[in-house]
C-alpha cells in the first residue's frame, strides 16, 4: 500500500457514511427496514441522505433495497427453494407484491424463472461440454474424458 492518504479525496466523511448505509442495506435487506433506519445508519436527515445516495448510486435507497431483495430471491430460487420461501426470506410480506416486483425487475415471474433455471441446470448436467468453449475443454483435458456420470448435481 502506498502512502497516499485516503483523507485527501473530497468529502471522504460523506462517502464513508453513505457506503456504510449501502452496506447496511446489503446486510439487513431481509429485515423490516425502511428509509428511516437506513438514513439513521448514515447519520443524515432523510432527504439529505436520499439525495446523496442517489448522486452516488444513481438510484434511491428504497429502489436499491428492492433490487437487493429481488437479486437475493433469484439466488434462493436457484437453490431450489419454493417461491414463498424466496418471498418471505428476503423481507416481503405478500406473495403478490413480491411476484409483481420480481416480474417487473427480472422480466419473468418467479415460477417461470425457477422453471427455466431448473431446465438449464438439467441440460448443463447432461451435456456440460456444450456450455464450455472447446479451447478450454481441450486445455483442461476434459475432451479426453467425456464420462461425467459420476459428477454430482
Amino acid at each position: 500500500m502506498n502512502n497516499i492518504s485516503t483523507e485527501e479525496y473530497p468529502k471522504v466523511y460523506l462517502y464513508r457514511r453513505i457506503v456504510q448505509a449501502k452496506l447496511y442495506i446489503d446486510s439487513n435487506y431481509a429485515e423490516r427496514i425502511g428509509i428511516d433506519n437506513i438514513s439513521d445508519e448514515a447519520h443524515f436527515s432523510k432527504y439529505h441522505f436520499i439525495r446523496l445516495f442517489r448522486e452516488i448510486y444513481g438510484t434511491t435507497p428504497h429502489q436499491y433495497l428492492k433490487n437487493v431483495r429481488i437479486m437475493r430471491a433469484q439466488q434462493i430460487l436457484k437453490e431450489g427453494k419454493s417461491i414463498s420461501d424466496a418471498c418471505f426470506s428476503v423481507g416481503f410480506d405478500s406473495l403478490s407484491s413480491f411476484s409483481g416486483l420480481f416480474k417487473k425487475i427480472i422480466g419473468q415471474s418467479p415460477s417461470s424463472y425457477a422453471k427455466q433455471y431448473r431446465n438449464i441446470s438439467k441440460e448443463i448436467s447432461r451435456t456440460p461440454l456444450a456450455y464450455i468453449p472447446s479451447c478450454f475443454t481441450y486445455q483442461h483435458g476434459w475432451l479426453e474424458n467425456r464420462n461425467f456420470e459420476d459428477v454430482e448435481e
Partner: peptide, 23 residues
C-alpha cells in the same frame, strides 16, 4: 465504476487490499 470513492470505500470495508488509493 460509477463512483470511484464510494467503490473504494466499499471494497476496503469488505477487506479488499488496495495497492493505490484513488488518485
Amino acid at each position: 465504476c460509477n463512483d470511484i470513492y464510494a467503490t473504494y470505500e466499499e471494497l476496503k470495508a469488505k477487506g479488499v487490499e488496495f495497492i493505490k488509493a484513488p488518485t
